[in-house]
Design a protein around this nucleic acid. Sequence first.
DNA 1: ATAAAAATGTCGCGATGGTGACAATCTCGC
DNA 2: GCGAGATTGTCACCATCGCGACATTTTTAT
Lengths: 221, 221
Amino acid sequence: MHQADIDTLMADPWFAAMAIGRRDGLLREARTEVLAAGARIYGLGDPPNGLWAVVEGQVRLKGLSVNGAELLALIVRPGTWFGELSTLDGLPRPHEATSFGPARLLHVPMPAFARAAALQPELYRDLGLLVCAHQRTALRFIANSIGQSIRVRLAVALLRASVAGDGSVTIRQDELAAIVGIARQTLNRHLKTLEREGIVEVAYGRIRILDLAGLQAVATE
Amino acid sequence: MHQADIDTLMADPWFAAMAIGRRDGLLREARTEVLAAGARIYGLGDPPNGLWAVVEGQVRLKGLSVNGAELLALIVRPGTWFGELSTLDGLPRPHEATSFGPARLLHVPMPAFARAAALQPELYRDLGLLVCAHQRTALRFIANSIGQSIRVRLAVALLRASVAGDGSVTIRQDELAAIVGIARQTLNRHLKTLEREGIVEVAYGRIRILDLAGLQAVATE
DNA sequence: ATAAAAATGTCGCGATGGTGACAATCTCGC
DNA sequence: GCGAGATTGTCACCATCGCGACATTTTTAT
């Protein structure tokens, strides 16, 4: 693994806070997987297939609401570990994960994780801490969703979805609408408002953030 | 501890699935705490003060949304353990917990848990599994909230809030409105609709479920 | 008992989101 | 290049939610 990849992983607070020995133990069992665009990493209801980390590219997590509509599409950026929930409790995946565009991941399959954890049982505690971190994210998400205006939620969603360093988000409007939890037409109206204000630029299958500070201001209205 | 209390605890899937040795180790460090009505168990932002379980009575967990409105009021029933998130990761409480009515709890303070875990490190893994269970609950909550009609969400909230065996929920309408995420007046309108249909009976500070099957039918509309 | 406080019941209005419909535009495979 | 399919842009209409306002009822404190 190249140094650049190590740097990417170390930017993650959870991974950086791990004890060195267990970090190395985990990496020793990890294998690199190169995925084509849109490859299925795991599906909703699948039995757990281990722990993953994004090294390069983008992974999108999608759940299904009761009416079958997509929701809770989280965009996972490089440096982030995911899939720990089912890995720890052994229950079926609560959402599906697919690569968006070509991607390079680290994969620690279940038996590999078990091997590493047999040597260093504290790895289970580390995994629990990762679940905690994501639980707190979910709680913040709920707190920010309820009672917030659509305009604010849209701004937050755009900021979360934009890859650091690049002000461009490749996403269809109906997907974005599902994330914000509104109808596609309503989303389009709000996007057009933001475009008139010079904050974003709306194109086919892509949204460019022109005024990052302005968008952040909207997100805290 | 009486046998009835043990039975109450064993009704919880997480506790029942624990290894016997660790279950006993946990209980050995637990002390019983009797609380008056409305007692504060911990507050939002507090440093962790350990793990708790409801033995008798009711505990309510409340978060705050960005605009300061109450939200995510979860009602914790006897047999349920809570407070594991901060206990595991050591970070501040993400919500507040208060007793509703007099209550009897089990309390495992941080040092006590550390003592038990020093003897049986797998307790950390158990705690991680509890976080997993609650994480899955949160995910289900999100999936059931988004895109569901208010009528359905209200029915679900009422079913969750009603203590088993009793068809009565003691709650103010503005609190219930905060749980469902709507305005008090709108909640009242929907409650009155359910009352006209003979499903519930609305009284001052209390809602009685008259037709449980009917309410469950509404919850799955 | 009585007053104050808390909680509930209703109404009307303004704002806004959902939906269906349909045109316009863009992309991709052949 | 070209056509099918996917995606976006817009509109009108309807439903309904939030909010302010205010009366009514119930509880609690003195």
